[in-house]
Amino acid sequence: MAERKSLIKIKPKRYKDGEIVKVSFMVMHPMDTGMGKDKKTKKIIPAKYINSVKFVYNGKEITHMNVWESLSVNPVFTIYMKVNGKGKLVVTYTDNTGEVHEKSKKIKPRG
């Protein structure tokens, strides 16, 4: 499978236990609708878009999403999350071609 890069950003960078932080998941993905044509070959580019995203924090699902092709290329998903102890946030997406990608970030509240 082709490389796929992603990033999880937490704002603010320093946070305390119990604080509500902004979490953004960014990923490089073509989000092809299946309706666009290749400019050179004139052939239709097959649909390839993220169809599901999950945010799991210390084993507990906090948010999941059903996604359709109308999201922008290289999409961004931003939610809030209440920090509840040290641990790990795991974001997973699948796309309509069966590609699965996982990205995780340590959650380290201070004070």
Partner: peptide, 12 residues
Amino acid sequence: SENNPADIMVAD
């Protein structure tokens, strides 16, 4: 720009 997709390329 707070969540700029190019942040991924910069990390790259």
